[in-house]
Each structure stands twice: as structure tokens, then as C-alpha cells.
């Protein structure tokens, strides 16, 4: 029901809008050329109707896409929890910079994922429930024991445990993207495809940086 309102409003708006707008819109409605769908190279093109042309029912988001988004929120939340430990446990300025960078990008992406789920009427996981004892861990996530070990460490020892943990954690995000693309029909929707590609690029870059930092540290 809500759907018909904007279309009606559109008609009213067009009727009251300026001359140039009316001309352009009227032209479009009056003489729409055929919509053509090409074939594979060498194959003929065919004419399709507007309904068929705009039919993306087979590339809608799937259950795997929803699970990916829900799982990634918890995954990102743990990265933020890890970076929060940094302020009091490291002496390294480089480590603080790294943590700040990770935090900014993860917070931004969490907001995006929450909105994505919300507008699609899907359950938005709470940030705390995901890594409680007994919760299912997404790939690469630190176990409660590993998190405790990290929380106990200090100075250079903390830096090493943090980098190792975060490399593993980010590697898990890459696996989640890989798993997503392997699911039948997943990541076919443009927004999901773009988001998964971004996560992949961003986490790869951070893994490279952290591997270099870890190598320096172990020298």
C-alpha cells in the first residue's frame, strides 16, 4: 500500500514542475524505444518488456548474505574490543595508531551493516551478545581464553599477542568473504558485492601491515 503513494505524488509533481522537466518526462513516456537485451557475443539481441528488464528477483540478498552481515557485526565488535585494551597495555605509538585505524574502519562498517539489516527487516545483533561465553565464534575470532590471555599481557608481549591475534582475526574475515562467495546465490546483490569486496581489500591491507610490524617486533 505504501508503494502507490510516491508514484501518485510523482504525477502531481511532474504536472506542476517547470517546462523543461515536463518536456523531458513527457518525451520519455510518449516514445520509449524498445528495451533490448543482448545475447552472448555473436548471438542476436532480443526485445524485453520493462517488467522483465527490471526483474532482479533472482539476485536478491539470500540467507547467506544476511548471516554474513550478522556474523560480521560480531566479528568487527571483537576487533574493537581488542583495540580498546591497547590504550593501557602498549608502549608503542605505532600500535596505538594501528588500533585507532582499525577502530575507525570497523565502527563505520558496523554502522553500515546494522542499517543494511534494519531496513531489510532483519535481526540486528547486539554488539555484546556475540562474544559472550558459549556464543558461536565466527572464523578467526579469539576464544574467551585467548581474549583473557591478551587482556593479561603488557608491553612488547601484549604487542606480539595483539598482532598475532588480530592477524588471525582479520584472516577470518577474509575466510568469511571467501565462504560468502562460495555460497550458492550469495553476494549477487550489488550492495553486498561492493561491501564484501571492500572488507576483503581493507583486511588484506591491514594483514600486510601487521605482518610487517610483527616481523619487526620479533627481530
Amino acid at each position: 500500500m505504501r508503494i502507490s503513494i510516491p508514484r501518485l505524488a510523482l504525477v502531481v509533481l511532474v504536472a506542476t514542475a517547470g517546462v523543461s522537466c515536463r518536456t523531458a518526462t513527457a518525451g520519455k513516456v510518449a516514445s520509449h524505444p524498445p528495451i533490448v537485451q543482448p545475447g552472448a557475443p555473436g548471438q542476436p539481441s532480443r526485445v524485453v518488456d520493462a517488467g522483465k528488464a527490471a526483474d532482479l528477483s533472482q539476485v536478491q540478498y539470500t540467507g547467506a548474505d544476511i548471516k554474513f552481515m550478522q556474523g560480521m557485526i560480531g566479528h568487527h565488535a571483537q576487533a574493537i574490543e581488542m583495540t580498546e585494551l591497547l590504550a593501557t597495555r602498549t608502549n608503542s605509538e605505532d600500535m596505538k595508531k594501528l588500533a585507532h585505524r582499525i577502530e575507525l574502519s570497523q565502527v563505520d562498517e558496523i554502522k553500515m551493516m546494522q542499517r543494511w539489516l534494519e531496513v531489510r527487516g532483519q535481526q540486528v545483533p547486539s554488539l555484546t551478545a556475540m562474544h559472550a561465553h558459549g556464543a558461536t565464534l565466527m572464523p578467526g575470532m579469539l576464544t574467551p581464553d585467548e581474549m583473557e590471555q591478551l587482556a593479561r599481557a603488557k608491553g612488547a608481549e601484549f604487542d606480539r599477542v595483539f598482532l598475532e591475534g588480530m592477524i588471525k582475526h582479520h584472516g577470518g574475515a577474509l575466510r568469511m568473504v571467501e565462504d560468502l562467495f562460495a555460497q550458492p546465490g550469495a553476494a549477487q546483490d550489488s550492495d553486498i558485492f561492493a561491501f564484501a569486496s571492500d572488507v576483503d581489500a581493507d583486511q588484506r591491507m591491514e594483514i600486510n601491515r601487521m605482518s610487517d610490524m610483527l616481523k619487526e617486533l620479533l627481530k
Binding site: P38, V59, G185, Q188, D189, F193
Partner: peptide
């Protein structure tokens, strides 16, 4: 995108 098809179809490529 991974939904792109050689035959320009709108149905995507699930595999």
C-alpha cells in the same frame, strides 16, 4: 560483479 553473465541475463550466476 559476480552476477555478470556472458549472455547479459538478469538472473545472476549463483555458482
Amino acid at each position: 560483479q559476480t552476477r555478470g553473465r556472458i549472455d547479459s541475463g538478469t538472473q545472476g550466476v549463483p555458482e
